[in-house]
């Protein structure tokens, strides 16, 4: 944490960029990190929690090994994205924000990824899947299950 914080300023404006960095490092924002960030910025933990819970990007729980993000944008929606999303929930057995008990997958939603002409779109760990149909869901996930 010390090394990580050293690269940042100590003003309020540095807060979100610090949070991004911490999350990139740990996959989530651990409670201990919140304390250290508050000290670094000379502010309260309350303030740090206030900001981080406002934004969708930051999570307080560790996520699964694979992050599955299903686009909920309007274009994906009219092209059948709702069905893909329902199927994904069934396939993984979790609700959005949830992580599978084996800690393999975390399911997330996003309001638009901007690949609207080739939706419905699903992103797994930064890899984009376009024109996803309900029938594709199982095989896409199976590929990651195999990888372990």
């Amino acid at each position: 944490m010390d090394d990580l914080l050293r690269g940042f300023g100590r003003e309020q404006k540095d807060l979100t960029q610090i949070l991004h960095k911490v999350q990139a490092e740990y996959g989530y924002i651990p409670a201990q990190a919140v304390r250290r960030i508050a000290e670094h910025l000379n502010t309260t933990e309350n303030e740090v929690y206030g900001v981080l819970t406002f934004y969708k990007a930051f999570r307080l729980q560790p996520r699964g090994k694979h992050l599955v993000t299903v686009c909920q944008g309007t274009s994906c929606h009219v092209r059948g994205g709702a069905g893909v999303f329902d199927e994904m929930k069934k396939e993984l057995g979790v609700e959005p924000g949830g992580t599978t008990p084996d800690r393999m997958f975390t399911l997330d939603t996003v309001n638009c990824l901007g690949c609207c002409a080739i939706g419905p779109t699903v992103v797994i760990n930064g890899t984009y899947y376009s024109r996803v149909s309900v029938e594709d869901v199982h095989s896409i996930i199976a590929e990651y299950r195999k990888r372990k």
Binding site: E11, V51, F54, Y55
Partner: peptide, 20 residues
């Protein structure tokens, strides 16, 4: 950091300032 409201200019500035 994933908040749609930041497209609104006063929210966007609050976000640059590191606030909610």
């Amino acid at each position: 950091a994933g908040a749609y409201v930041c497209g609104e200019e006063t929210s966007l500035m609050a976000s640059i300032e590191g606030r909610r």
